[in-house]
Simulated scan of single mutants.
Amino acid sequence: MKIFAPILLLLLAFASCKKPQSFEYRDLRNFKIDSLGFQNSSISMDLVYFNPNNFGVDLKHIDCDVYVEHNYLGKYILDTTMHIAKKSEFVVPSKMNVNMKNLFKNTLTSLFTKELLLEVKGTTKVGKGGIYITVPFSYSGRHEFSIF
């Protein structure tokens, strides 16, 4: 019975926890082209999110694919641990290599429209107290973009 009491208490604590809400995308800042090439280019930016939860978490790893107008743009990987406070905005520094061949597919579309469809699909590891879980995520939204 002494063995089951702590396990039962732990199960009750987990059962009473509210399901965490997803981070909310807020803004893109400091967009910069680091290197420009015919095959590949490198870009960097700061992505701003908001944690709507009443608890902080640690973000350990992000691995995702980025698409513009359904065309693969590149892979983004963040392999560092960040602490995210409860009910607060946070910035994810982002750097990715872009396949220029796929970017050129979107050039004609970009010239004639003010909005582009941006899609991000991948996984992230989040946790607390050294216990992490892999969480899949998907984002799709139209964003204003102008080359002029």
Rank of each mutant, 00 (worst) to 15 (best):
N97F: 13
T81I: 12
V48I: 10
H70R: 15
P136R: 04
V135S: 14
E144D: 07
L10H: 03
E119R: 10
F14D: 01
Y49C: 03
M82K: 03
F112Q: 09
G74F: 01
N54M: 03
P6W: 03
A5P: 00
T107V: 15
Y132R: 02
V92D: 03
L73E: 09
D46F: 04
M45I: 00
G56I: 01
M82R: 10
V48F: 02
I3C: 09
L111H: 09
S16V: 08
T80P: 00
G130F: 02
L11M: 07
Q21G: 02
K105D: 08
N102M: 10
L10Q: 00
L108R: 08
Y49E: 01
H143T: 08
L28W: 03
L10G: 07
F38T: 09
K19Q: 08
V120F: 05
D46I: 01
L36V: 03
N102H: 14
R29I: 00
L28F: 10
L36A: 05
V98K: 10
H61Y: 15
K18G: 00
P52T: 03
E24L: 12
M96C: 13
I43Y: 02
P52R: 06
E115M: 08
L47F: 07
H70V: 12
N106Y: 07
F137D: 06
L47Q: 09
Y139T: 07
Q39S: 05
G130L: 01
I147S: 01
F4Y: 14
C64H: 10
Q21D: 06
M100G: 13
I133W: 05
V92A: 08
S42F: 01
F104V: 14
E89R: 09
I84W: 01
N40G: 01
T109V: 13
D65F: 11
F90N: 06
T81A: 02
L10E: 00
S94I: 05
L111M: 15
L28V: 12
M96F: 14
F38S: 14
T123Q: 07
M100T: 15
P52W: 04
S138C: 00
H83Y: 09
M45R: 00
S16F: 08
I33W: 06
L28G: 05
T109P: 02
D65S: 15
L116Y: 01
F148I: 01
G122N: 07
L117K: 15
G129V: 01
L47H: 04
M1P: 13
P52Y: 03
F4A: 13
V91D: 05
V92E: 05
I62A: 03
F14K: 09
L117S: 12
D63V: 14
I133A: 08
V126G: 03
C17M: 12
G56M: 01
L118Y: 13
Y132T: 00
V66T: 14
A5W: 12
V57W: 07
T80R: 12
E89Q: 11
L78P: 00
I43M: 04
K60Q: 13
K87F: 04
E119H: 03
V120S: 08
E115H: 15
N71I: 13
L103Y: 13
R26E: 06
